[in-house]
Design a protein around this nucleic acid. Structure first.
Length: 153
DNA sequence: CGGCTTTGACCGGCGC
DNA sequence: GCGCCGGTCAAAGCCG
């Protein structure tokens, strides 16, 4: 029977990331350990309820959320942030340890979608990694949740 | 030895 | 009611 208890609302979810999504964007050439020699380039970011708004290259998939949210406030919406990174490998280390827990193929993409989860205890942050459909050279990393432990390396 | 990876199967939600 | 999709978990195996 289904009596699985999702998560406790009393979690420290109230906490937020040490930085804002926009701040993370400057991670590319301002703060990045030699641990990641891979080229890191953030083109655009998006954080909506469930839609990914890409504004690069035009043409594509620009989705606008319905008229559900008025100003995006109150309510404990999950922190969903989509990062578009130009990289050859999808295994970009952002300073946290991730454990892959599933791989699935989306119907709209010939590329598989990888599911990662924070290995830390208490850190129930999830990470979704998928390759772009029109730009296989780009990788879309979607972070979901909030870290609850030292984010520094 | 521990930790992580991989694949498959399963489940829930939603739509029509 | 059924089908579809996405998402998650489990077990096993492998590696360092």
């Amino acid at each position: 029977m289904t009596d699985k208890n999702p998560y406790s609302p009393d979690s420290d979810f109230t906490n937020q990331w040490p930085l804002e999504p926009s701040e993370y964007l400057k991670f590319d050439d301002d703060q990045w350990p030699d641990d990641n020699p891979e080229p890191f380039l953030a083109e655009h970011v998006t954080n909506q309820d469930n839609e990914l708004v890409a504004d690069f290259g035009g043409s594509g998939s620009r989705i606008e959320g319905p008229a559900s949210r008025s100003e995006g406030e109150k309510k404990e919406v999950k922190d969903k942030v989509a990062f578009k990174t130009k990289s050859e490998v999808e295994i970009l280390d952002d300073g946290f340890k991730w454990r892959k827990y599933g791989k699935k193929m989306v119907k709209n993409s010939p590329n598989p979608r990888n599911y990662y989860r924070c290995s830390k205890d208490g850190c129930q942050v999830k990470k979704r990694v998928e390759r772009d459909v029109d730009d296989p050279s780009y990788v879309i990393t979607t972070y979901e949740g909030t870290h609850t432990h030292p984010s520094f390396h």
